[in-house]
């Protein structure tokens, strides 16, 4: 089965994510993009339809193995849209639009099936993807460049845990303005410590607090700036556990919550309820209560959830490389990023 062999690339990616060789979503995004470039330029496909099927099987594989992983499927989803666009421009056929009128008047003969084999398709898609890769690489720079539009002098900014994007954002702002940052340590990972040490090194006045002090400190905070794992289709977040409480506290004190997010984190998935099984994942409780605690461990249950669902009403603004958007606009961004038919795969 050549198909199975071809899937080796994606299996390796999945295993790397599972084994935490790839942790940052940016690294995952780049790996996925490279994987797709390889697939498109060297893969066994004759028509756009075949290529799309190859990508779709990969998306399905990722979704089966890593239901919480959003970055890799999103990159692939976007690639599907690129393939569609390139096919349309190469074949000079137009996709039936999204308007009701077009849907009603569409005749079966007009429907694009992407089955024609076109000569230039391969190179044009690869070109398009290379462009996309540049966009990916400059994304965090572009987000950081907006820092001065959001941070004024002598502000107190609260952030949670560690996020490369937020770190870059704050450091950029610190070049021109002085402000204080409060870093929530983010138990049980305590990656806030690394974040704080790094910010302090860049001459930002940094205060580290435990997760418990968020509500107490929030009354003096001007802005909450956080990163996220995924942005959901309704504008909600799947973010590190503890962020829900932070967002609630911010809401209570009417502090704006800004979420820095790359475009590949915008996911066309809706979450019915945060208690949906596939939504969250619990990892080893060792971080919460050490195994050395003794026989008491036999008698208790311990949860160490990784994510929190943050409803869209608690988020004030999303900042991506294209600029700021409110949560209510996320659905529109999604339709720009992905093709309607690829939402559910």
């Amino acid at each position: 089965m050549p198909d199975v062999e071809n899937l080796l690339d994606i299996r390796r990616l999945i295993s790397d994510i599972q084994h935490k060789k790839l942790v940052r979503s940016y690294d995952i995004a780049l790996r996925t993009e490279e994987l797709l470039e390889e697939l498109i330029s060297k893969g066994q496909w004759k028509s756009a339809k075949e290529l799309m099927n190859l990508v779709k099987t990969r998306i399905q594989l990722v979704r089966e193995n890593l239901p919480q992983e959003a970055t890799a499927p999103n990159i692939m989803r976007h690639t599907l849209k690129v393939i569609r666009e390139e096919y349309q421009s190469a074949s000079k056929k137009k996709d039936e639009g999204q308007s009701l009128h077009e849907l009603v008047t569409a005749t079966p003969s007009n429907v694009l099936d992407y089955s024609d084999s076109l000569i230039d398709l391969r190179s044009s898609i690869v070109d398009h993807l290379t462009e996309y890769k540049v966009e990916l690489e400059s994304s965090s720079e572009n987000i950081a460049a907006q820092a001065l539009e959001h941070i004024h002098t002598n502000e107190i900014i609260l952030t949670v845990g560690k996020s490369k994007t937020v770190e870059k954002f704050l450091k950029r702002a610190a070049k021109d303005r002085t402000f204080n940052v409060i870093v929530v340590e983010g138990a049980p990972l305590y990656d806030g410590h690394t974040m704080a040490a790094s910010l302090a090194k860049s001459n930002i006045q940094t205060t580290v607090i435990a997760d418990s002090a968020v509500f107490a400190m929030m009354s003096r905070v001007n802005k909450v700036i956080i990163g996220t794992h995924t942005v959901l289709a309704n504008g909600g977040l799947r973010a590190a556990s503890g962020i829900h409480a932070v967002a609630l506290a911010a809401k209570h004190y009417s502090v704006p919550v800004m979420v820095l997010s790359h475009m590949y984190k915008f996911s066309p998935t809706y979450v019915g309820s945060p208690n949906h099984e596939a939504f969250n994942v619990c990892v080893s409780p060792a971080g919460v209560i050490p195994y050395a605690t003794g026989p008491i461990l036999k008698q208790i249950e311990v949860y160490n959830p990784v994510y929190d669902y943050v409803p869209p009403e608690l988020v004030t603004l999303f900042i991506s490389h294209q600029g700021g958007n409110s949560p209510s606009y996320v659905y529109r961004l999604l339709s720009e990023l992905y093709h309607q038919d690829d939402y559910d795969l």
């Binding site: 983010g186 138990a187 049980p188 997760d211 418990s212 590190a240 556990s241 503890g242 829900h244 409480a245 945060p274 208690n275 969250n280 919460v288 209560i289 605690t293 008491i296 008698q299 208790i300 249950e301 311990v302 949860y303 160490n304 959830p305 929190d308 669902y309």
Partner: peptide, 28 residues
Amino acid sequence: GKEMLRRLVVAGIKCTYIFLNGASYVMN
């Protein structure tokens, strides 16, 4: 909370232990 947990478990009460950031997860 660990001390509390110990006392309750000793008393025979069924307990679950979480960190504060897991509160949203269990609150439902």
